[in-house]
């Protein structure tokens, strides 16, 4: 297997990707792209590189551009370096009605960054979350590394972020 960078494909990752492949008909190689990318991204500090995309394309025997198309479409994929922990504050209607904007402002001030940015110490990436994160009855809410934190208050947020310090 030429061109597959083994740094990204240790045994564990390979077996995970093989398990993904089993879910789909054999000739539907593209089907495994999304979940494989999630795994590879997680192993690479939360973002994808050209190398990863090329390697996955070779591994799955699909075109690089097919993988890249997917990587740029879905919002959970980052094709630029990001911080170690990803914070997504839901600001969609239900959360907005319960003052999510205050929560977001607070986090921005506290971390000294705007949405879409990463803190200097690389600890936090504040994702520009456009979607509703489906926890409207726990509004306002956020996800840190895709774990939900609901019914947020400023104090709660401070505590949560401390856990990641």
């Amino acid at each position: 297997m030429n061109d597959i960078n083994n740094n990204f494909f240790n045994n564990e990752t390979c077996s995970m990707i093989e398990n993904i492949k089993k879910k789909f008909p054999e000739d539907r190689k593209k089907s495994s792209i999304i979940e494989s990318l999630l795994i590879l991204q997680k192993n690479n500090n939360g973002y994808l590189t050209k190398d990863i995309i090329t390697s996955l394309a070779k591994y799955l025997k699909v075109e690089e551009i097919d993988v890249y198309e997917v990587a740029t479409f879905y919002s959970m994929f980052n094709t630029k370096p990001v911080g170690i922990n990803t914070i997504s504050v839901c600001t969609n209607v239900s959360c907005m009605l319960r003052n999510a904007d205050n929560i977001l402002n607070h986090i921005e001030n506290k971390l000294g960054i705007k949405v879409g940015e990463t803190t200097k110490d690389q600890k936090f990436f504040l994702k520009d979350e456009i979607e509703c994160l489906a926890a409207c009855n726990g509004a306002p809410m956020m996800q840190v590394n895709h774990k939900n934190y609901e019914n947020l208050t400023i104090e709660k947020v401070d505590k949560i972020l401390e856990e990641f310090e």
Binding site: K50, I65, E69, T72, F73
Partner: peptide, 21 residues
């Protein structure tokens, strides 16, 4: 041989080849 693809989405959608290709 797919050389060009659709990248990004919505208003930012653009046509391009794979990185540096």
């Amino acid at each position: 041989t797919k050389e060009l693809g659709l990248l990004d989405r919505g208003e930012n959608m653009k046509i391009d080849s794979f990185i540096e290709k």
